[in-house]
Design a protein around this nucleic acid. Structure first.
Length: 591
DNA sequence: ACCGCCACCC
């Protein structure tokens, strides 16, 4: 840059282009100060290109307010914005999620721009779609898209992303099929969109489809496919993708490696997560967050904290997600004091204002530990009107400790806030049936039925020989389920000799005791574990996954089972991992 | 010169 500057200084006659070139040169070298010095040193007839160079430079480097300030000055001087100016400042607003400001610029533009050029139609409208998409205004983004007289691939990709981001996956799918052309971005967005919305299966299918097109997988689409494996816990496919990643030369991609950390953790092989983490040539905060989360989900709170402290020592700045992660980790391991300390340090030491989700984790931390007075205190002093995450955390804690009074209160709030959410009805009715209040339990279920709320059916699955085997409660569909029931019976009688007693308080409907014990023995997680024990080579770890939370009796049963069969059993439920070994679970019964 | 994709938390 020094040489360029010298050459520039020696130029006898400098025109607008040479000034602008030197400015963009500084910006490319991350030297915004240098750029602004050159800009300020320009003679008075600064034209729109020079202004644009500065504005887009600030925008790209994340200096949103500087970028917008410059555009205001420019406007005051009477210099008209062109398509580049609008694109930059709209993007600045999009990046910072400045909805109102962006909307003002949009309105101003409509008032002042009479005959938009083609350039204008593409880039500015695409930036507008992005603005509304990033601010969560999906339908406004769609309006822009629909009103565009001509669209390019970026317009299509933007509207696709807008739907994916808010989980409107069916509309995204529609856009995807209608698109006149597709590129890497298109495929990547759709693949990770499926993964994000719990359709890992479809994500992988799409990834395979992509391979048969002229678009070959890039690091983004690979990351999406790996994320899909994490969602469905398909370790075999995940390992294959890891190999493919290395083969295709993307092993140094941060996003792909970061997704590997999560994938291995969510497939139950924490060691592999760690070896990815340890061998990565460089790490960013996402990598640290992923590894901390991995420890947390596996119940290794102390290790999560250790890593978090190491992260701070390495001068990696923790972000909102780091705190969500560390709070969860503390919560799962019952590290209440540390969790509270970290929560307080968010704002005090890092200037991050805790969001509702952070408060949710804090309340979860307290309630799990039975500290309901403290939790209520937090709720009363909330700086905002408590929403669903707060009451869900409270209800979850109440269920664990059988705190009926507070639980009912939380459930009532949730019925108002999210009446279609099945989890509230299930938790409340479980609380009632756990304490033998069968009538109340039935009433809650009736309420649920009358409102047309469907319960997500419980299912568990296990991967054997590269195939995923799914079991439902009281399964009759799996071809070998009969053998599984027989084997399970055999196991239970051995377990009973060691002291296992089916805990019928986890049965949800009132019936005779014998029936209750039978009902427990048909839980999907028991079937999947028994199937694994039958099919996997002796000594191999059993890794079972369940969509909902593990049942208390199953948890108890697996402790005994791990002792009887002398094997490690790992169960991932909706929230975390349980490692059963020699009659004990890694969660220490704190979950 | 300007507009689009990722990974971490759910």
């Amino acid at each position: 840059m020094d040489a360029a500057q010298k050459l520039f200084d020696e130029m006898p006659h400098k025109d607008e282009l040479s000034w602008t070139t030197i400015i963009t040169g500084y910006i490319r070298n991350d030297d915004l100060h240098g750029a602004s010095q050159v800009f300020d040193g320009m003679n008075n007839e600064k034209q729109v290109v020079a202004w644009n160079a500065m504005i887009s430079g600030y925008m790209h480097k994340g200096f949103v307010s500087e970028s917008l300030e410059m555009s205001k000055k420019m406007n005051l001087l009477g210099i008209k914005f062109d398509a580049f100016t609008y694109t930059s400042i709209l993007s600045a607003c999009a990046n910072a999620k400045l909805f109102l400001h962006g909307k003002q610029i949009h309105a101003y533009m409509i008032r002042t721009v009479i005959n938009p050029s083609h350039h204008f139609l593409y880039s500015v409208n695409n930036a507008l779609i992005t603005l509304y998409w990033k601010c969560g205004k999906t339908d406004d983004a769609r309006k822009i898209f629909d009103r565009m007289p001509i669209r390019d691939l970026i317009s299509w990709n933007n509207i696709l992303s807008a739907y994916v981001d808010v989980g409107r996956i069916e509309e995204a799918r529609l856009v995807f099929t209608k698109m006149p052309e597709k590129n890497h971005v298109t495929w990547s967005v759709m693949i990770s969109g499926f993964a994000q919305n719990g359709s890992g299966e479809e994500g992988l299918k799409l990834f395979n489809q992509m391979k048969s097109t002229e678009c070959q997988p890039c690091d983004y689409s690979l990351a999406g496919a790996i994320k899909s494996c994490a969602a469905i816990a398909s370790l075999n496919h995940g390992r294959q993708l890891h190999a493919q990643l290395i083969q295709s030369g993307f092993e140094s991609s941060l996003s792909a490696s970061n997704s590997l950390i999560t994938m291995y953790a969510r497939c139950g092989v924490l060691q592999d997560s760690q070896s990815v983490f340890l061998t990565m040539p460089c790490l960013d905060s996402v990598s640290w967050n992923a590894m901390i989360a991995a420890f947390g989900q596996h119940g290794h709170g102390a290790q999560a904290i250790e890593l978090f402290e190491e992260m701070l020592k390495e001068d990696i700045v923790p972000d909102r997600i780091t705190f969500l992660t560390i709070l969860s980790a503390c919560s799962h391991s019952g590290l209440i004091d540390q969790g509270q300390r970290y929560f307080n340090s968010m704002k005090d030491s890092y200037g991050i204002t805790p969001g509702e989700d952070h408060y949710g984790r804090l309340i979860d931390l307290l309630c799990r530990a039975g500290k309901f007075t403290e939790a209520k205190n937090v709720i009363e002093k909330l700086p905002f009107y408590p929403g669903a995450p707060v009451w869900e955390a409270l209800l979850g804690g109440c269920r664990i400790h059988g705190n009926m009074e507070l639980g009912v209160e939380a459930a009532e709030r949730l019925f108002e806030l999210i009446p279609d959410h099945d989890g509230t009805y299930i938790l409340l009715s479980n609380m009632y049936s756990n304490s033998g209040k069968w009538n109340d339990a039935a009433q809650v279920r009736n309420l649920m039925r009358s409102r047309g709320v469907k319960k997500e059916p419980a299912c568990s699955w296990i991967e054997v020989d590269n195939m995923v085997h799914v079991f439902l409660v009281d399964d009759t569909k799996h071809p070998e389920v009969q053998k599984v029931y027989e084997y399970l019976e055999e196991l239970v009688s051995k377990m009973r000799k060691l002291g296992y007693v089916p805990d019928t308080k986890f049965v949800l409907h009132d019936m005779e005791n014998e029936q209750k014990e039978y009902a427990l023995s048909t839980h999907s997680e028991k079937l999947a574990v028994a199937f694994g024990l039958l099919k996997l080579p002796s000594g191999a770890m059993i890794r079972v996954f369940k969509n909902l939370r593990i049942c208390g009796d199953c948890h108890n049963a697996f402790e005994f089972m791990s002792q009887v069969v002398e094997r490690d059993i790992v169960v991932r439920d909706g929230k975390r991992f349980h490692h059963f070994r020699n009659g004990k679970c890694s969660c220490g019964n704190y979950w």
